[in-house]
């Protein structure tokens, strides 16, 4: 038995240490926000935060998640009633098509903005593009919503610029 904190709630799970975090979340905890797409960190659909750092939960064994670590899924980032700035921008730009990759995209984008924008000196548009190109290309979207992802990140960045993280 181990206890895993997901979106602020503790869950007791009885799993072997080499089960990837993704499957603990999806099948044991019932947190289906993170998705299974490739199983080998090639698509990013399973992205969650462990102690506020984005990770591919399909490639992280639960045994390597420290006891008491804080796991945040897309549902812990914001809710329909209290959207995170990135989620609001995603809706403003009508980004999603099938939507299956979007939890991972949004988690990656929110981490990028947290690291590079919120509370930081303003980035030029070219520098922001550079960061988007490098930080967001590990998240695959088969529907091809990349243009809108870029636009939504820029729109969220404009709102977050100068704000405290």
């Amino acid at each position: 038995m181990r206890v895993i904190w997901v979106d602020g709630e503790p869950h007791k799970v009885d799993v072997e240490g080499d089960m990837p975090l993704l499957w603990v979340l999806r099948d044991e905890v019932g947190a289906t926000g993170p998705k299974y797409g490739c199983g080998i960190a090639m698509c990013g659909a399973c992205t969650v935060y462990v102690d506020d750092r984005p990770v591919r939960s399909c490639s992280l064994r639960i045994g390597d998640v420290a006891e008491g670590a804080k796991v945040t899924t897309i549902r812990g980032l914001g809710t329909p009633q209290a959207l995170h700035a990135v989620q609001a921008a995603w809706i403003e730009h009508q980004v999603a098509q099938c939507g299956y990759c979007q939890p991972g995209q949004i988690m990656a984008a929110a981490a990028l903005l947290h690291d590079k924008v919120a509370g930081k000196p303003p980035l030029s548009d070219a520098d922001l593009d550079d960061h988007i190109n490098h930080a967001m290309s590990a998240n695959l979207c088969r529907c091809g919503t990349y243009m809108r992802i870029r636009a939504a990140i820029k729109s969220a960045a404009a709102k977050l610029q100068g704000q405290r993280p």
């Binding site: 019932g30 289906t32 926000g33 993170p34 998705k35 299974y36 899924t73 897309i74 549902r75 980032l77 914001g78 809710t79 329909p80 959207l83 989620q87 995603w90 809706i91 009508q94 980004v95 999603a96 939507g99 299956y100 979007q102 939890p103 949004i106």
Partner: peptide, 23 residues
């Protein structure tokens, strides 16, 4: 006119249920 897709909020908050998410 442009319409807000009815599945958009759910798809952006991880609350949309795909076939693979059925429990």
């Amino acid at each position: 006119k442009p319409m807000q897709r009815i599945d958009m909020v759910a798809k952006c908050t991880g609350t949309a249920t795909f076939g693979i998410d059925i429990r």
